[in-house]
Write a protein that binds this DNA or RNA. Structure first.
Lengths: 356, 356
DNA sequence: TAAGGTGATGGCCACGAGACCATACGCAAG
DNA sequence: CTTGCGTATGGTCTCGTGGCCATCACCTTA
């Protein structure tokens, strides 16, 4: 099947400025001015051109405009998975703020895999995005490519997670502080056997939450049993499976610390299935204040992220970079790094462990 | 501040095919062939060009390509709100399937408002999207514009909701059947005072679910009290507020039928706040099988939508249209309309109403 | 030996809009 | 009458790629 019939073929169908000009009886230059510098036209000419624009449903071709001017009005957004509510809210904010500035956003999930991510980055670069907001896959090997993109004039901002050694600007949660608060919350209720559901990565433990967790325990005189450690993706399904595994251990944890909201949902489901109740049988603390966490009884204690503020900040950093342009990058200006604090919301899913 | 410093400026930064050709010591035509028709080159030439591509990190400019060929590889997706899990899952499927075919997807929320939607449509048309998948706002007045876009060669598919009178292809739930099953489920348990949480629109009741609801009642000998009718957007917040209102009526419903998952979440929250328990005090049936619905106790009875299948179908219809091209539209081929059945999942949120 | 085919490569224009220079005209000051 | 200037408008080249035609060397066949 011929490629030419496979895709949107617009020549001859969509109106161009030439046709507008012809219909209005002016030159293309004048017609263009009616759109971009209407003050320079005589009122009567302006009226005629506007009439033609209206009649032909003319809409300037952004592709041609971007090509000629070298200014793209498209951004790329790579996240873990759009069905994760954290990413959905982040995406909403980013898309909204970008559109308010006249930019479109191409969205793609990396599915927490760096090969998928690599393909998206190439595609975004090929589409000449003006900027890129990235939530990299754990253990991503795409830092070189990102830096090359940046060198080619693409603004890049990392969110939620950073590639180790990355010099790029980023917007992150204060993960160390948040993990400490979560652990402190559990320890204050007397828990000693605590397991974290987190995104352990075989090679690179880029996840700051899981990196901090053992230290947060040991600084309080506790240790992390080897049996509590597993390697997972931060999804509902993995949360479910790891929680099942943990609670079937000879010495199961008395408290579970889920480092993402979806993992918490999976764990909660596993606990229900095992007939275990929260917090009577197991205490639970989670990241991400998801709607369901106040629908269950009692509600889940959680470390809420200021998602909207983080999304806005990411867009702001991106446009700062785009404003400065390649200059600043050549001059090795220090990249801006932002940290946002998590807020502990207590609802009752943590109580002292049962005496055995 | 000058516009020229505001955006991505790529000329002189990104490598073009001309530079690749120069570095490889061949003409641009030969260099291009190395990418699109490598079989036509002598092995040694091919090697040299590939080396240059590698060295310069050359990536073809999709903007220029789309402009020249008239074939865009970008799609537009307009949904209600990405934070609604139904739309998130739909988006995931659509973006995934589109990327598998080499297409990018620009995503935008219409926030259930047709003026926001109109702005997105103009922007998508200006960006020369090859196709558009749309979940229109209730009471959308953009049908004319959509038809003009279609006339200009843009493939259009509606999902989840259709503009009244629209001749466009669509992918929908069998809403009439689903509402009937939900009502039947409640009536079978003896409920007579049933309220629907739905997206009533002041002017146009485009929402098939709310349109069907009164008939589903009356065909079973029941009637819908005027006090149970309200106008809402299908959000968590509105679900919460309408449920509060309903349960404070002199004659509150004995069962609530939420026509979206988010409204169900809002209603559930309202019931908790009022100290009412499901199903002891109120029975609840919802659309959309969201994860939280099996985390609460008892789980929520729900009409599950085959979201992934619907997303895949929408992409398939879109590419069918793009394949056929403008020809078929001129020939007034009958648009394809697909309906998917909902599945009733029973978990225990419906029991006979309490004797008063 | 001439005609014809084939494989490998290059030249050239167009897509639609942006940037800049050029032109034509009116009008006032010298 | 010329000069200068401002206003209104038009002409032309360019961005990077796709599509098509042209060229040239080499080989085969009658």
């Amino acid at each position: 099947m011929p490629l030419s019939r496979h895709r949107f073929w617009y020549h001859g169908l969509v109106a161009t400025i030439t046709e507008v000009a012809r219909r209005a009886g002016v030159s293309t230059t004048t017609a263009k001015r009616a759109i971009r510098e209407p003050g320079k036209l005589a009122p009567e000419t302006l009226r005629r051109v506007r009439e033609a624009v209206e009649a032909l449903n003319y809409e300037p071709d952004q592709l041609a405009s971007a090509l000629r001017s070298g200014r793209s009005t498209t951004l790329g957004l790579v996240i873990g998975s759009i069905v994760e509510p954290f990413f959905a809210e982040l995406t909403r904010t980013i898309v909204h703020d970008a559109r308010a500035r006249g930019f479109n956003v191409i969205v793609a999930d990396n599915e927490y895999r760096d090969d998928v991510e690599a393909a998206h980055l190439r595609s975004f670069y090929g589409n000449r995005v003006a900027g890129l907001i990235l939530r990299s896959a754990y253990g991503s090997s795409n830092l070189d490519y990102l830096l090359r993109m940046q060198g080619r004039g693409v603004a890049v901002v990392e969110v939620d997670c950073i590639i180790p050694g990355s010099p790029l600007p980023h917007v992150m949660l204060d993960n160390v502080g948040a993990v400490d608060r979560g652990v402190a919350h559990l320890v204050a209720h007397g828990h000693q056997r605590i397991a974290a559901l987190s995104s352990y990565h075989p090679k690179l433990n880029a996840d700051e939450r899981v990196q901090r967790f053992p230290d947060a325990l040991s600084s309080r005189g506790l240790r992390l049993p080897a049996a509590y450690v597993s390697q997972t993706a931060p999804t509902e399904r993995e949360g479910y499976e790891v929680a099942l595994h943990l609670m079937r251990l000879p010495e199961p944890p008395t408290a579970i610390f889920a480092t993402t909201g979806s993992m918490a949902a999976g764990a909660y489901r596993a606990l229900m299935e095992l007939g275990l109740r929260v917090p009577r049988d197991v205490s639970l603390v989670a990241f991400d204040d998801y709607p369901w966490m106040r629908l269950v009884h009692p509600g889940i204690d959680t470390l809420a992220q200021p998602v909207e503020a983080m999304g806005r900040a990411a867009v702001r950093l991106l446009f700062d970079q785009m404003r400065l342009g390649a200059q600043a990058q050549v001059e090795h200006t220090q990249a801006e790094r932002l940290r946002f604090p998590a807020e502990l919301v207590v609802r009752g899913s943590v109580t002292p462990p049962r005496a055995e």
